[in-house]
Design a protein around this nucleic acid. Sequence first.
DNA 1: GGACAGGTGCGGT
DNA 2: ACCGCACCTGTC
Length: 276
Amino acid sequence: MRYRILKEGLEILDKSQFNIRHILECGQIFRYSLEKDCCKIVAKNLFSRLYSYDDRDIIISDNAIEAEKYFDLARDYTLIKEHLKGRHTLLDAATDFGYGIRILYQDPVEMIISFIISANNNIPRIKGIIERLCRELGKESGGYYAFPTLGEMSSADEAFYKSIGAGYRARYLTETVKRLKNDFDVNLYGIPSDEARKRLMTLLGVGGKVADCILLFGYHKTDVFPMDTWSKKIYFDFGFPDAPAKDMAKRLVDMFGDMSGYAQQYLYYYYRENQR
DNA sequence: GGACAGGTGCGGT
DNA sequence: ACCGCACCTGTC
């Protein structure tokens, strides 16, 4: 993909594989604001502002090199879309619709916490809970709050997580923060997805779907297909019979292999935006 | 007022 | 292993 590193950020010169609306609204991220002229994104301790023009996008960030990695700019998404083309009319429509999707390199701990909060929940509320979490525990970093560190999160008790609106997930959060701080190694980058999923699922509040989201968004493991309510509609529209979510995911991963995560993102975005 | 939200844990078979 | 159900909470 064509882009340039600038002093204060990045210049994206290929609108065909970078669309900030697609990237932000395909369900991978919660900490952003999307306005007409400017988008703001917070990732761990990286803050980016993004301006879209007819022929280019400009990313303003305090760390251009980190932003380059974060937005996965080195990857050619035209190859991914080509690879997924011609398999199913729904997927063809989905890749056309969400042509500018990119899967971000997000922080594993932030993903674990965020997706525990996401379970059986809706997006506006998830965003609110996470923002309050960051505001209360995260470091004020000049205009935004960083995602809290494990140390910061472990200083809070279950009552705190209830107070920010986490509901029954408060217990999951306190327990999981404890695990992450004490006996859980979050370095799963070199571990195969199956084994990594098993380990993640030993965390309280992490089931199959949440584990797959963590693997995809936190570790960029693309041989997973997170089965949420939309993905289940997708599965049925592919003509498959009802089955446990675990089996649905397996079937789709058998179908798409290493491209599963990408396929899921295009389809999820297409379905949700069109309320199919 | 019940169903629904980017499901999961838990107890009973 | 495989169901079935309860669950915080805001919104439609």
